[in-house]
Design a protein around this nucleic acid. Structure first.
Lengths: 248, 248
DNA sequence: CGCGCCTTTGAAGGAGCTCAATTTAGGTGG
DNA sequence: CCACCTAAATTGAGCTCCTTCAAAGGCGCG
């Protein structure tokens, strides 16, 4: 509740940068900036650029920040005792990263850039502070955490009940939809991740991923050319996925 | 921020009931009661008793509450378009339920009592309100959501990388640990869920669950008698689980 | 242009599923 | 308290989907 000092250094930066971002409607920070009026005194903003394969955070790092993907593509992976690791998610622009660190207060995943990327950094402490003062920010933050719960539960359902064919189909449809929501083509896109990443994410081997994609191509559902994917029969793909809404 | 009217009807009930609960250190509500001092004017408490097989909430219900398991045992399950369903979690006393509803504002799972149970009902709105006024309640609530994320991510890792044998071993060790944390025997307990539930949760068939338990018994790791489980060689069981800490 | 990594494709094997038949347990009413 | 009935659990046999192992091809990048 105590007044926080105005940080003049950031005063200009915040609205300028956010104005150019194009993701206002998704962004917690922008919502905060709006809520706090033109003064924007509660700057909790900073930004990180990452080259492909760079890590945004690592398992074991102290949890201080939630990250907002401004540009690019990330994967998160959970390391296991024995060198093996499991990809637990793919994150594109407008999505939030780092919530795996909230409870244990250290991150328990690695977040790795799959392309050259840019992420906004939210101080968790200030985010919490702000959401105590502002109901709509609080609600938005809760929703972000809730969405992460939803997302992972959807993955559990996929891993628990779907066959390889369905998993791949659902994966493609999910990507397609997320691309579409960002104004890109839903029917033609480039996979930023390797077959290995996909396999790990879906609980399949790289060979199975490859074979299923080949099979889909053979059936005329898609066209594959290395990482370039074209969806030619999205209805057929949805059917292959087992119907049930394709939105997961 | 506006002052909420004191609700005299609940005035006495809260501290009395909570005092008898024995789960104070786990309970958001108690923490709130403590924080608000002896007045306890912010009663957001109510309690529901459920018979076995009764539903605490259903998929599609409006999201209003987070539930705290005071006594008994619950499972949550996600329905799929085609009658099939997947168990997404088991919850015992001291654990929170209902966070699947936060983002979509309706529940997306069913929560079913596996035994006669009792759950405290937290109004989400009042919880949010309270956590705006009180930093430690806020932190605790965030941690609860974070733990749920962690839990489900652990399940993803299990479903994505573990063999049947390991899944069952990890499942038993996880239960054992949670029973131990509640003062019950870690080496002898009764499973409140069916083999079907276990199979669904672990992405296995009922037959595989049954066979693995029989196998463990044959190896002298456990004793099984219907739902009664006795762990005879927890080190061996941990080894079967693939080491990696057994805490997941 | 050559090296490493990613990907594809094939063939064989196995872990877990499906189908089917019994046995057992738990709840109910006589 | 026992008999009954239904749901839950066990066990077996065969099969299948996916993995494992192996080898070759392709792409990107220094």
């Amino acid at each position: 509740m105590q007044g926080r000092e105005r940080e003049v250094g950031n005063f200009e930066i915040l609205p300028t940068r956010c104005a150019r971002c194009g993701l206002q409607e998704l962004c917690l920070l922008c919502s905060m900036a709006l809520q706090s009026g033109s003064q924007a005194e509660e700057t909790i903003y900073s930004c990180r650029e990452l080259k492909r394969a760079a890590r945004l955070y690592r398992s074991g790092d102290a949890f201080n920040s939630i990250y907002f993907v401004r540009r690019g593509f990330f994967k998160t992976l959970k390391r296991r005792g024995d060198g093996r690791a499991q990809v637990t998610g793919f994150f594109m622009s407008g999505e939030l990263l780092g919530m795996d660190g909230i409870a244990p207060n250290i991150y328990t995943c690695d977040a790795v850039a799959l392309q050259d990327s840019e992420a906004c950094v939210f101080s968790y402490v200030r985010l919490a502070e702000f959401s105590r003062r502002n109901e709509s920010v609080q609600r938005q933050f809760h929703k972000a955490m809730g969405s992460e719960i939803e997302r992972v539960q959807g993955l559990v359902a996929l891993l628990g009940t779907r066959r390889a064919e369905e998993r791949i189909a659902l994966f493609l449809l999910n990507l397609s939809q997320r691309f579409a929501a960002r104004g890109y083509s839903p029917s033609e896109f480039v996979l930023p991740m390797t077959r290995d990443d996909i396999g790990s994410y879906l609980g399949l081997t790289i060979e199975t991923v490859s074979r299923m994609l080949a099979m889909f191509q053979g059936a005329g559902l898609i066209r594959v050319e290395s990482r370039h994917i074209q969806i030619r029969d999205s209805a057929g793909l949805r059917q292959t996925a087992g119907w049930t809404h394709s939105t997961k």
